[in-house]
Structures are given as C-alpha cells and as structure tokens.
Design a binder for these strands. Structure first.
Length: 636
RNA sequence: GGGCAUGUGGCGUAAUUUGGAUAGCGCACCUGGCUUCGGACCAGGGGGUUGCGGGUUCAAAUCCCGUCAUGCCCGCCA
C-alpha cells in the first residue's frame, strides 16, 4: 500500500490524504497560498456516510480565489490521485471526501495490532524525556476524601499516559508534614486522650476536627504553635514523634491508594527538604540572582520578598498595582509554603543538585516505593526536564509565583517546564469537604472518603455479580466485585475533563450502565467469551481472507482501532485522561453494534476475519484500560 | 476593586487549542428486541435560540467586544 507504514494508521492515512489534497490543490490553482498546515487543519473525520476522510480546504480557496467552494472542490477532486489506500473521491457540499480501501486498511490495522500487542498505540512523542508528576500531596493527618481521590486518579492516569507516550515518568508524592495542620493533629494525638482505633488516617482526621472545635472554644493557639516550633527544629523528640505519626497516617492513606490501583515511585517529605538544606541553597541562589530581596524597612521589614513590580507583565494576575510584594520568608526567619515550593522545583528540574537520603518502603504494585529519610541510601530521583503538578485550580496564584521567581532568576525556559494541571475541585451538594471542619465525614451513614466510596461501589458490584449468576465461587465473586467497583469509580472520576469543577453525587459515581467503566468491561468480557467458545488462538488462525470486510460496523470498528495512537498522544499532551475514556466509550459502543449485528462464530467465510477483528478490539481495549486503570476481566 | 476558571436538552458530559456538513454520547422518559456468540446490551422516539447581547465571517458552541451567574484566588495559611 502506497506510503502506509505500520504503527500509526489513522495518522498515516491523514498524512497521505493531506499530501494528495495539497498536490491536487497546486495542480488546480498555481498560487493558492495553501500550505501543508492549512490542509491538515482542514481535515476532519466525516460522518460515516460521507466517506472516511474529509477536507474543507475548498472553502479557503474559494475565498482567496474568488470562486465558488463547490467549483474549487470539484477542481481539487479532479486533480486528486485516487490510488491506494484510497478508492474514491467525492465532492459533497464543498467538501472533498475520500474513501479508504476497507479491505487493505483492515488488514493493515489488524496486523499491526497483533504485531505491537501491549505496546500498540504507544508513542515516541516524549523522546525519553524525564517527567516528574506530583500527586496528590494530601496532608498526612486525615483520610483521602473524594476530592483527593480525583487528584490522585488524575495524577496516576496522566503518569500512565506520559509513560505510554514515550516519557520517562517519575511518580512523586509531596508529604507536607510540617505546618500548623500537622501540629494541631499532633496535639490532638497527645492530649485528647483517645486511643487510636480503626483505620489510622480516619481516626487522626477525627482528632484534627475535634482539636479545631476546641480551638474555637479555648485558647490552644500558643500551645500548638509551640509544638510546631519544636517540630520544625528537627532534632527534638516532638519532631521525631510527629514524623512517626505522619508516617503512620501516610501508610493508612496508601492502603486507600493501592485499593484504587494508585502507585508512586517516591515520597518527598517537606521536613526533609528543610533538613537537606535545599531551602537554604535555593534562597541563596534566588537572592544572589536578584529575584528575591531582603527588606530592612517598611511593612515587610525583616522579610525576604519578591517585588511584584518586576513581574507585572508575566501574567495578568500580577497587574494589580496595589499589590507590591510577596513575602517568601517571614520576618521570624521561617519559610512560607511558596519558599519551599520554589526550592522543591529547583530540585525537581535539576537546578539544585542536592541529594536526599532515601529508604525503600518495599514493593508496591510491582514497583519499589522510596521515601526521603533522615538516613538511607542515594537514589537518582529528580533532575527531570518537566515537572507536572496535579494541583487544584485554587492554587494557580502560588504556582505562578514559583514560575515568576524562576523567570527573575534567569530560568525562563525552566519556568515553562513547570506544568500546573489545574483541576476543578470536588464539592458536595450543600456542603464543603473541609478537613478542618470535617466535611468529609458526612452527616449521615456515608462518609465522603475514598474508602467509603470504594466500599459502596464494591457492594453494588457484588450485588450485580451475584445477580448475573456467571460466577459462583464466592472468593472469585469478591475479587471481581473489587475490580468492578474500583474501575467504575476510576472511569467516572476520569471521564470529566480535569479543568471542570465536579459536584459529587453517589448516583453517578456508582453508575454501572451506559457511559461507564463496567459497560466497557462487560463488553470486553462478552468478546472474550466468543473467542473462548470458538477455541480461537492468534497463532492458530492462519492466513485470513480480508475480502470478508464489509462497510458495516466491522469497518467502523477498524477505523476506530486505527485511531488509538492519536488518542494517546492527544490525551498525553493535554494531560487529559478523559480523552481516553471518551475513546473507550466510542470503541465499546462500536464493538457492541458489531456484536449485535455481525455474528462471528457462525459467519462462514467472514469468521476468520471477524475473530481477528474481535481479538484486535480486545487488545486495544486492554491497552486503553491500562491507561485509565480499569481491569480487563474475563467474566463478571 | 483586580485576576482566574466554569456556563451546552430535566440531569451529567463531548466537540472550543486548529471556526466547517444535521452540536455527539450517557442518565432519566416513551416504544420495540433474549429457543440464535453474555440484556451491566441493542434499535427507534420525544426533548437544544450552546447563559445573555452585539461584532467578524460564505460559515460561530468555537474567534473578538460587552454583559450576567456560579466557584475560586489576590495571607508573614498551606
């Protein structure tokens, strides 16, 4: 087939179509001013009865040449070299539409899927560049609530996507174990007189809420800030104990993470950033380069600040002349959160070579998890070329401050390599998820924690599995229910584009029908059953006659399968897992239609082709499942 | 006051970066389909002035201007 190379079918098709259109344009109009990019932008996927590839370029030519779009389209179609992979070109309403040779194309797509297997639709886009992805950075004093879950699922899936798109990915979690919040929980742990019970993160979260109640009533402020001071000094018994409690809490939070299939490579503790003297180095550099200044007089006397006057043109956020400077280091010498974030990002992007000590925390989900630690070995984390931060959109301003300081330091290019994936926060109807007030505890029987949500989903899946009577073994049933419940929630949380705010509803979070994870899984299991019944094996099927390809749902499915890599690249470059869930829905729906209308086992001459198509669909579905973290079950 | 998001049938969402054909899908609602590969399914139907008002264009959900609503940020909190 002319010019068609393996590995990127729909992209190749588009490229060849664009080339052919461009040639045809220049044949018909000598100086049209149309270039390759213009043609590529004009290409779209038409409705199926209009062909397989479409260009609206005739409209553009009509304008510049003062002719009718229809006439231009006809002229272009006339000059279009109709050769493989195309079989026909038609003009419709000013559009130039081409039809693909469905038999040859189906052959090629399926052969490529079989050849690439689990790597099918992966991409070299990232060129092996190292990306450090940060999520979800929950304070170690409470359980994950459904908002943290959105963050973690986005981070996890974006990491999968970047990895599949050819980046070297490091999954990092920032543990903010200093600060007032932790001191408050620590005080509660010591003074409330409650013994830990149940899951530690949940218990600690409740202590935190209780402390906040008491702070409103009595005067605990002094006592708690005293505690914080001891914690920050690092060498005290309090610091050691506080860290221990935080670690115990993170342990419990990570149990939640694993239940959802969320993993990390490394935890970076805020207290270790301070201990490793990263902060001091970063501040020294920033001041030496004039990005930060120490004030000796005025309202910020004694502070280290960034002069907002110097960064007005960086972003509109800084344009307000009433805001003159941003405090980075307080007058008492303690660092703000932003200060630590500046230092941390300099480390992430290799601008400070300082190394942490790490200890291994064992094998988690097939990968070794490390944590920064007071003592331990060296590892090669950090020094990435891109830092992707999955952080709520509310934190836009402090993220911009970090970038602004980078620019003032002369790290303009690096500042652009800090990516804030600003996701819309999750709210609940008529309430807040505040950790301080305990909104995550809910008011009725169901808490808005990630754990409670999973319990509900698994229970619902258990009921459905029991009702289906496909599985009788109770242990198996439990396993399946866990997979279905987890996948349902993952799909539901990922299917909305990250930037949009979400109002949580139990009903839609536990959706198992239509646009849902279980629907995709169910369809996959049905496909698998057919191959089982037919005794199919990829190796045993032998040569297939692709004459059996019709222009029905079989070819619609083929076309979709060919688009997988484009989907992955779009999703990765936009940090948007919902591009994948959308595609999965389309793919699943296309397969369901195929399944409904085109029998496989009893289809005579078409049987071989249809079985290979089915196998190819399963392979692609499985690859996409992996990216968003839903399980490919054989039965459910 | 300044800034940033978001706004698409009753509800939830896609398409907005790069303007193109009848705004795609799911839930809910109505109708039909299991002795034939798994009904967590499929087919058909009703339901839309894409917040509102202007503008640009052969063509606007998409670009520009204005405006409204909601949320968030503008701290020596994190």
């Amino acid at each position: 087939m002319r010019g068609l190379t393996m590995g990127a079918q729909s992209k190749e098709l588009k490229r060849i179509f664009a080339e052919s259109v461009l040639t045809a344009v220049s044949k018909a109009y000598s100086d049209s001013g149309i270039d390759t990019q213009a043609v590529i932008n004009s290409i779209s996927k038409p409705r199926k009865d209009y062909g397989d590839m479409s260009s609206s370029i005739a409209f553009r030519i009509a304008k510049s040449k003062g002719v009718k779009p229809m006439d231009a389209a006809v002229a272009i179609a006339k000059g279009f070299d109709v050769a493989a992979p195309f079989t026909e070109v038609k003009v419709m309403g000013g559009y130039v539409n081409a039809y693909v040779d469905e038999k040859a194309y189906a052959h090629m797509v399926i052969a490529d899927i079989e050849k690439e297997g689990d790597r099918y639709a992966s991409s070299g886009m990232g060129k092996g560049e190292k990306v450090m992805v940060e999520y979800p950075a929950v304070n170690p004093n409470k359980p994950w609530h459904i908002g943290h879950l959105r963050n973690a699922l986005l981070g996890d899936s974006i990491s999968n996507l970047l990895d599949f798109a050819g980046y070297k990915v490091e999954r990092e979690d920032y543990i903010d174990d200093l600060g007032l919040q932790i001191a408050e929980s620590f005080w509660g742990y010591r003074n409330l007189g409650n013994a830990p019970e149940g899951k530690f993160d949940e218990w600690l979260g409740k202590q935190y809420v209780e402390v906040n109640k008491r702070m409103k009533e009595g005067n605990l402020g002094g006592e708690i800030s005293g505690l914080l001071k001891l914690m920050e000094e690092g060498d005290s018994e309090e610091a050691r104990q506080a860290r221990q409690i935080s670690e115990r809490c993170v342990d419990a939070q990570y149990d939640t993470a694993y239940a959802y299939g969320i993993y990390h490579d490394v935890m970076i503790w805020e207290s270790d950033i301070v201990k490793a003297r990263l902060l001091q180095k970063a501040l020294d550099m920033a001041m030496a380069r004039g990005a930060l200044e120490r004030r000796t007089a005025g309202k910020n006397a004694g502070c280290v600040v960034m002069d907002l006057g110097k960064v007005r043109d960086f972003a509109k956020d800084f344009e307000n002349p009433e805001e003159t400077e941003k405090v980075i280091v307080r007058s008492d010498g303690t660092a703000t959160y932003v200060a630590k974030d500046i230092a941390f990002h300099m480390w992430k992007l290799g601008l400070i070579k300082d190394e942490f000590s790490y200890k291994g925390l064992g094998d988690h989900g097939g990968r070794m998890l490390y944590s920064t630690s007071a003592s331990g070995g060296r590892e090669s984390f950090g020094n990435a070329s891109i830092a992707v931060n999955v952080i709520g959109s509310a934190q836009r301003y402090p993220q911009l401050i970090v970038k602004a300081v980078f620019r003032l330091m002369g790290y303009g290019t690096e500042s652009e390599r800090i990516v804030h994936v600003a996701y819309g926060e999750v709210s609940i109807e008529g309430g807040t998820l505040s950790g301080r007030k305990g909104g995550w505890m809910g008011d009725g029987d169901k808490a808005f924690t990630a754990d409670a949500l999973l319990r509900e989903a698994v229970q619902k899946a258990l009921d459905a599995t029991a009702a289906s009577k496909r599985i009788s073994d109770s242990k198996m049933m439990e396993q399946v229910a866990r997979a279905v419940g987890k996948s349902a929630i993952r799909f539901e949380f990922l299917r909305t584009s990250p930037g949009k705010p979400v109002v949580f509803s139990w009903k839609s979070a536990l959706n198992f029908e239509g646009n849902s994870g279980p629907y995709c899984m169910y369809t996959f299991a049905r496909a698998m059953r057919i191959l089982e019944k037919a005794g199919y094996s990829r190796e045993g099927i032998g040569a297939i006659d692709f004459k059996a390809v019709e222009r029905g749902y079989d070819f619609e499915l083929v076309k979709l399968l060919g688009e997988a890599q484009e989907v992955v690249e779009k999703a990765a470059s936009e940090y948007s897992p919902n591009v994948v869930t959308d595609y999965l829905m389309e793919l699943t729906s296309a397969f369901s239609k195929f399944y409904e209308t085109m029998p496989v086992i009893s289809s005579g001459a078409a049987r071989g082709f249809r079985m290979r198509l089915l196998d190819a669909y399963m392979q692609v579905a499985k690859n996409m499942f992996g990216l968003v973290g839903i399980d490919a079950l054989a039965s459910m």
